[in-house]
Design a protein around this nucleic acid. Structure first.
Lengths: 256, 256
DNA sequence: AATATCCGTTTGTCTGACAATGTGATATCA
DNA sequence: TGATATCACATTGTCAGACAAACGGATATT
């Protein structure tokens, strides 16, 4: 006999499903307040505790957020929400540095290529400023790591492609967080980093996608070489290279 | 005066934070059961309703799943969880077909390149079988769309890179779901699709990464051309091309 | 030893309650 | 009259306790 496993939904999950559906099909509009718990009890014919548990599922999906610690409003999940999820998934599933790097290498190349087309004055200035800051902080590894991360995020942002941002940001966060490992171990790496960023910047500023991508790829390859020279085993999980407490702080960095 | 906005945590969110932390730092081990609600009440000194709301947040993050509709077990979030999130984010934020395609193009090329190295016999056979099925279903657009989606997923899977899967799967799902639009409108598109898949398959089977990537890129470019010929405005949100009800069914397709 | 029965645990849901906080209406004052 | 202060209400967050259903394991039966 052929059969599907029997699945019974809990009521609170059904609450979630119905509300999610209503949001996706636009019956509950984004930026408008969610009905009050009492109203939902009425509509869905379950008690408040059940409604509340369903709402918690919505909340964690980013489909509702709170305006002013009070009334919940319907909202489109923002990128940081997905990032948190991916970061948890990557770390707990022990994805390796190699896997991460391999993907990120392509995404960064794409980002730098796309950035050429549309980059705005303010973003260009932010990039220049970022490189300047890197020079200033040359001797402070912790700060370098942050600024480096920001450099790449700025470029991805300049690509004006939200699908790219969505895929790239969480991976980038993890990858560059583990670059701490390299920078603290290899003195010369900071100078190479600055030189690479400068070349990438110049290419973008000159609206030269092919060179931007070329230098970015070199930069990424250099990153890998640095990791290995610093003694990183590229086939180990990233979790080995990133401090858990740093990790907790990472997600909030995304929200700005 | 300089100040940070005041943020007050609710208790249930604090429950979530503490449990998440415990899982990330390995104090609660993956595949072991979560403490019972009563135990958590004891540990965290809050009432059961509060504990339960916190657990719902965990549940939606994929950090706990249910074994047998009963006891919850701690778990690493699986890829489908992230996919759901990204899909919601992409659709509700009205990301365009162009953005999606641009990223997916690179990821598919990477996937086909990587697939060459490690592909296993069973996966190769599955690919061959997939192409055969496409031929058989040539005249059934709905089925073609599904099989096409599966073809690309198989290749991504063969890449043996979970970071790639994580980034690619949700985007692929959305992109190929909207290919329905092309296939139903352009009669000849199915034949081109089969030919392309065949070439990609041959390259992978011959362990020829460069050609695999080359044909994949051509295939992707062809996809775009097809969309435009079929009258799709590439700068419109994907939401316009995907039926909401299909969308709801999409995520469950991921879980297998 | 295999099967059937029973019982305690755990969860899902309900009921009801209350304090804190934000919101809008009303009253007060310049 | 218009701005401000006050108040009453609505809504949420949390508590307290209750109960039925389902599961898992222990015990009894064949």
């Amino acid at each position: 006999m052929k059969a599907r496993p029997i699945v019974v939904q809990t009521s609170y999950r059904e609450v979630f499903n119905q509300l999610e559906d209503a949001i996706l099909r636009g019956e509950l509009k984004i930026d408008e307040p969610l009905p009050t718990e009492a109203e939902l009890c009425d509509i869905l014919q379950v008690k408040r505790s059940t409604v509340r548990e369903g709402i918690r599922l919505l909340e964690q999906s980013g489909l509702v957020t709170r305006n002013s610690a009070r009334r919940l409003v319907v909202s489109a999940p923002d990128a940081s929400r997905s990032s948190e999820n991916i970061i948890r998934s990557v770390t707990l599933n022990k994805v390796t540095l190699e896997e991460l790097w391999r993907v990120q290498r392509e995404l960064e190349a794409l980002a730098s290529r796309l950035a050429c087309d549309n980059i705005s004055k303010p973003l260009l200035e932010a990039l220049a400023d970022n490189i300047e800051q890197t020079r200033v902080s040359r001797d402070d590894p912790k700060t370098i790591v942050k600024i480096d991360m920001e450099f790449h995020r700025l470029i991805a942002h300049a690509s004006n492609n939200r699908a790219l941002t969505l895929a790239r940001d969480p991976l980038g966060l993890l990858l560059y967080a583990s670059s701490d490992f390299v920078i603290t171990r290899l003195a010369q790496s900071t100078d190479r980093l600055i030189a690479a960023h400068q070349r990438i910047y110049d290419s973008i500023a000159a609206n030269d996608p092919e060179n931007a991508a070329k230098w970015m790829l070199k930069h990424m390859d250099d990153f890998k070489r640095g990791c290995i020279m610093a003694g990183a085993v590229f086939d180990d999980p990233i979790l080995d290279f990133v401090d858990i407490d740093v990790l907790s702080g990472l997600t909030e960095a995304l929200r700005k």
